[in-house]
Design a protein around this nucleic acid. Sequence first.
DNA 1: ACAAAAGTGTTGAGGTTACACCCATGG
DNA 2: CCATGGGTGTAACCTCAACACTTTTGT
Lengths: 236, 236
Amino acid sequence: MGIEKVLEYQGRDFLPNLSIDLVIIGYQEGALKCLLLNIADKWVLPGGHIKIEESVDTAVQRILKERTALEKPHFKFLSVFGDSNRNFLAEFKAFFEERGLPWQKDHWLAQRFVTLAYYSLVDIEQLSPKPGEFDEAVDWFSFDELPDMGLDHESIILKARNRLKEDIQREQLTYNLLQEEFTMPQLHRLHETILGEKLDRSRFQKKMLATNQFERLPKLKKETPGSNPYLYRRKN
Amino acid sequence: MGIEKVLEYQGRDFLPNLSIDLVIIGYQEGALKCLLLNIADKWVLPGGHIKIEESVDTAVQRILKERTALEKPHFKFLSVFGDSNRNFLAEFKAFFEERGLPWQKDHWLAQRFVTLAYYSLVDIEQLSPKPGEFDEAVDWFSFDELPDMGLDHESIILKARNRLKEDIQREQLTYNLLQEEFTMPQLHRLHETILGEKLDRSRFQKKMLATNQFERLPKLKKETPGSNPYLYRRKN
DNA sequence: ACAAAAGTGTTGAGGTTACACCCATGG
DNA sequence: CCATGGGTGTAACCTCAACACTTTTGT
């Protein structure tokens, strides 16, 4: 969708006052990262709207696919953000004016939005994120070094970060952040990163294997000194 | 709001396509119960819409207060129900026609709604639920004997039932279902009811007291044989 | 041979289970 | 004094934290 279309487009095909924001989380170089878009000097979460004839879950899948090009990306509901002053007016006004485009304060994008926030765990290596129609740039940011963020998106991203920490303790979600085949040391370091604390290596391994969710594959051939770790894969 | 107003009213003050549904849960005579409204031969959850100038949480509080007359009722987010075919068309058409009122298929109420479902735990004794504008009757139903329900409200209510079971195991939510002062046997039976299984009486009591969240009050004077139980109250 | 990495074993502390026991109260 | 209900104690069992030990591999 080109910029001309955006201008004339008044959201006719979408549910008004309702948006979707996505916290797309990846894991790279031992750090948790988040995909952000640059718009008018601020960074914001990727997102979109729900088509009239489309279920919310389908919309999330569609928007996710636009960003990740993955066929079946993981996603999980995070929270509703429904403050009465949630609108992008300032951001979009700046964006339009920067480009010398006409801005009306009753533009469709200036309305108040209730947003449904989801988080998605992806394997960065498999990804090819594409810049959207509105964003000048797309980049991954470590959760420890977030840029200046627009609207309330910083609180959304931090909520996702905390939710992940909680969810990982009762659900197996980490598969989505790793390749299909992975080693226990890799999984161990990932859990330590998410939880932000040291985990006993011995206990972690035994706990994971006790779940009986893993299929042990031949050992991985490494170049570094030390024993070669087994590869594992999810059963089924 | 009288029925005439409903007719001319086209939802101008509310966010369109977005509704709130409430699973109001109480505990009475040893059973978990849910508040339902009768509309056109079906029973539905109480609910409402979000005002343009109002946050989602404020809307939930307002709608809850309309139903319960409680000043600060408990509530917790349950889930988004966003199927593309979620509309009340059939129900409202029947409701209007029963009364000989004109019905147009493009009525505001016939649109597709994304609903935000919340559940609320209340002490039935403190309540005075008022019939809403649309409902012919209001009643409490045990979760084991739900009536014929409209739309997807049965799946919402069952989801709330299961969520409660999960949540009770990590959070103290049960206070809201009991009077301010309660005994351990009462709390014990409540947990057994919610979880649907027997819990060891001794262990339950010790676990609860170990949390150190309770203030022990003088014993309750009963009429029945056996030792009198202590009363407890939440600390703070 | 040595250091580093990975896998497994051991021990004790602390929690949980399933009861048993005791006390209070009304009939 | 007995049945009932409520509070507490206890021994067996299980789980888990902490650390030790062993094996594998590159230099």
